[in-house]
Amino acid sequence: MTARPSPTSTLDGGPAGRGNTRIGVVTFPGSLDDRDTQRAIRRAGAEPVALWHRDKDLKQVDAVVLPGGFSYGDYLRAGAISRFSPVMETLIDQARAGLPVLGICNGFQVLTEAHLLPGAMLGNNHLHFICREQKLRVENAETAWTADYTAGQEIHIPLKNMDGRYVADERTLDMLEAEGRVAFRYLGMNPNGSLRDIAGITNEAGNVVGLMPHPEHAVEPGIGTGGTDGLGFFTSILKKLVNL
């Protein structure tokens, strides 16, 4: 590669002065999107730090992304085994103490299994794997991971999953709605039977966010959806960390 379209596409840094914000990406056995997530973090101008599922050490990162994939083969339930991995012991404590954590797809499943987010993920209601470009509405633009969007904004990012059906009891769903904790909703069609078209949610504090679709696959022109609608997740967290 000889031509680089912009300074943000450099692989080993990012815009001057922001490269020292460090965002961890956990790799579990069966993680698939850890490298794409690292790339998205770099594109946003932060430094990705590889974290390993068997290592309790979070390497003093400023935030963590749990990436997509099929960690531990999704055996038992998606995320059920990963949730007890050594890295999660530290992560659960630190997330409760305010560490920003984003769970994408399998990462979202891990966060619900860890009870950092309410509800649970089940198999798609149509029983098929689904892979499509999905329209979402950003419902909450005040979380650590969505501040670069505006409430009500519509974005297109890829969706690809087997176990994407978000479920929770009515009381929990009503609470999420009342507290503005439904962060993203599916638009156009509900691809997996998720209750109330919920595509992603946030915890009460807004530091832990999980969603099924994949923002890390929509961060540069010409790849994935061809748009950059997903980049805002990574620029949101970067701005938040820089402005602390």
Binding site: L122, G123, N125, H126, L127, G193
Partner: peptide
């Protein structure tokens, strides 16, 4: 077992 109120598409199939 899934709780009674949870949809079970595999069982339905």
């Amino acid at each position: 077992m899934l709780k009674p109120e949870i949809l079970d598409p595999q069982g339905q199939a």
